[in-house]
């Protein structure tokens, strides 16, 4: 071999040698924004796919299986029995309607309560007062869900504060009932409704309200024509919280709901007592379907676009 080719080879390695693997990866990443983005989102996306999509799919698939009632084994033989049950047995219709009713009631009541509170916080209260209010609204979130439900159990009881307040008016506490459950759920989810509406209101500039008033709109018109439409996405966000969280509840209804049950209780009974996971999965499809419809309706109004 002559010297020529050797020296050429050396030259080539001289150039490439300092470029480590990491260096080359970095260069490649620097050059391609698309690749960077893909790498960045792939981990969370994988997580999303596994945790949410796969879990939902698994749930859906399970709903078509059956449980051997004696041994408690789940048998993956495909059939529609569970869904036939759902559609033919009046139990499921009754409970679905009841759950839907409570969820709507809680949502509407929460929005009605949250609007003035949020408005006061965002537009009326002094900064100091606002801070106190935000903390006092957040405070209950730090307490356990169960503590709050049991507190309401005591409030609603025959010897509770509600009875004491209502007796002079000739009324009685709603006690442990659907109304009691709706009150309690309304209380528990209220911060989740107030906070997005408050944030939404804070985003409404003061001069927009002044402009409306300046153009001759009385307070009510301003609220109806300006504030409410601008707040719609925030209200929608709040309603999603109150509605979906109520749809899935099975604990509060047990504590203050008296002898009634919601869809969550049926799921719980099928998982925890009957060990009938396929039936539980089928029942769980009901609130999922309802939430799906609810979100589609909200999406149609365009409220989600502004979120």
């Amino acid at each position: 071999m002559s010297d020529g080719p050797v020296s050429v080879t050396l030259k080539g390695s001289d150039i490439s040698a300092p470029k480590s693997f990491a260096h080359r990866v970095s260069s490649r990443l620097y050059a391609s924004a698309k690749l960077r983005l893909r790498l960045l989102v792939s981990a969370p996306l994988l997580w999303l796919a596994l945790v949410y999509v796969a879990a939902l799919l698994a749930l859906f698939v399970t709903a078509f299986w059956t449980m051997d009632s004696f041994t408690g084994e789940i048998r993956p033989d495909w059939n529609l029995d569970n869904f036939i049950q759902l559609f033919t047995n009046s139990l499921y219709q009754t409970v679905t309607l009841r759950t839907l009713g409570i969820a709507l009631m809680v949502t509407v009541v929460d929005i009605l309560i949250a609007l003035p509170i949020a408005f006061f916080m965002a537009k009326v209260a002094s900064p100091r007062m606002r801070g106190i209010l935000v903390i006092s609204i957040l405070m209950p979130l730090w307490a356990s869900y169960l503590v709050k439900a049991y507190a309401w159990r005591s409030v609603l009881s025959n010897e509770g504060i509600l009875q004491w307040l209502l007796r002079p008016l000739g009324l009685d506490t709603p006690g442990y009932s659907l109304v009691g459950a709706a009150l309690t759920l309304g209380y528990i989810w209220l911060p989740y409704v107030i906070l997005p509406i408050y944030t939404g209101l804070e985003k409404v500039p003061q001069n927009i309200l002044e402009a409306s008033s300046d153009l001759g709109a009385k307070t009510w018109s301003t609220l109806r024509l300006i504030v409410f439409p601008m707040l719609l996405p925030a209200i929608a966000a709040g309603s999603i919280f109150a509605f979906s969280l109520t749809m899935g509840d099975y604990i509060t209804i047990n504590i203050v709901g008296g002898a009634t049950q919601m869809l969550g209780n049926l799921v719980y009974t099928n998982v925890g007592i009957a060990n009938n996971l396929p039936m539980a999965a089928a029942i769980a499809m009901i609130p999922i379907a309802i939430m799906f419809i609810y979100l589609s309706v909200i999406r149609k109004t365009g409220a989600l676009d502004n979120l």
Binding site: P205, N207, E210, A211, S212, D214, I226, M230
Partner: peptide, 9 residues
């Protein structure tokens, strides 16, 4: 009033 930052809806 015409506002400084217009205050359009």
């Amino acid at each position: 009033t015409v506002f400084q930052d217009y205050a359009l809806f």
